[in-house]
Amino acid sequence: NMNKGNYTAVTEFFLMGLSHYPGLLLALYVLCLSMYLVILLGNSMLIIVIILDSRLHNPMYFFLGNLSFLDICYTTSSIPQMLIIVMSERKSISFLGCAMQMVISLGLGSTECILLAVMAFDRYVAICNPLRYTIIMSKRLCAQMASWTWITGFLISLVQTLLALINPFCGNVIDHLSCEILALLKLICGDISLNVLIITIGSFIVLIPPLLLILFSYIFIISTILKINSSEGRKKAFSTCSAHLTVVILFYGSALFMYMKPKSKDTKTSDELIGMSYGVITPMLNPIIYSLRNKEVKGAVQKFLIRSKYFKRM
């Protein structure tokens, strides 16, 4: 352990991610800003359509609305701050700001992992127990599942963040564009084995059981779909799942790639870009995937657009 003199009382952090590439930063700024606007637009529209169209008042769209709301919050917790940092000379964020950003982005990331599993369970009940679907997936159960998803995600995140921030820091320059917990741990003086353990346990809780639940749900779903006699019926059953499956593969693929691969010193830039891909690209694609893969959403969106055009003319 280092002697007491080296500890710095940290009141702010400097986010220096990608600062060696000033040319890349401008391109990144334009890209992130446009993606962020697409995320806000796409997800808000999906939420509005789900609320307004009574045909979409069922568990699948209730959870999809949660997912869209989560994606708006998730990107809002990091992108605007990141855009300010990229363009400012003094790339600093207050200690409290950094703590808030970490709690929120970790909490929402964890919540999304669990929510995707809840959505898989919903598809499983819909396809494997269609006659009992409305009884099993009651409004009350859906509300409970949704709220426990958010609570669990944020509890895990709070524990991880608090344990990271109570440590003394030997510096305050984070080599990342946002307050990312793994980047922050590199600044802690002394022993971080407890932090690494807690983060590993946390990642395990939000990645492995949900993934297994999704996997088993889909094994049952696919075997049920294969038993359907008519090809039309098979196509309809699969189309309600394919959107969810696409989102799962995108989200978990990048998350697992990011956290499970061994850390090496020279892959920092690629790390940051992968981190961004699952922080920005998945939320952007979710509404697109769901609207394209889903006749009901497509119909509702068209109805919504026609209605707003009609109101404009009046």
Results as ranks from 00 to 15, higher is better:
92 S>Y: 04
145 M>S: 08
85 I>Q: 02
112 E>F: 09
126 A>E: 11
70 L>Y: 01
54 S>P: 13
130 P>L: 03
43 N>L: 10
144 Q>Y: 11
148 W>N: 06
30 V>H: 06
107 G>D: 06
143 A>F: 08
66 N>I: 08
134 T>A: 14
68 S>L: 00
64 L>T: 07
115 L>G: 02
76 T>Q: 07
156 I>R: 03
56 L>Q: 01
75 T>M: 05
158 L>G: 08
112 E>T: 13
155 L>A: 09
64 L>I: 05
112 E>Q: 15
42 G>R: 02
116 L>Q: 00
61 Y>F: 14
32 C>D: 15
74 Y>I: 00
52 L>Y: 10
112 E>G: 12
110 S>Y: 15
142 C>G: 06
34 S>M: 09
141 L>R: 15
33 L>F: 15
121 F>L: 12
63 F>I: 08
23 G>E: 14
44 S>H: 10
100 M>W: 08
43 N>A: 10
51 I>K: 15
91 K>R: 14
68 S>N: 06
48 I>F: 13
147 S>I: 09
27 A>S: 13
131 L>I: 10
55 R>C: 09
29 Y>S: 13
157 S>V: 08
44 S>L: 13
39 I>T: 07
65 G>S: 14
108 L>H: 02
151 I>N: 02
27 A>D: 09
140 R>F: 10
27 A>G: 14
62 F>S: 11
112 E>K: 15
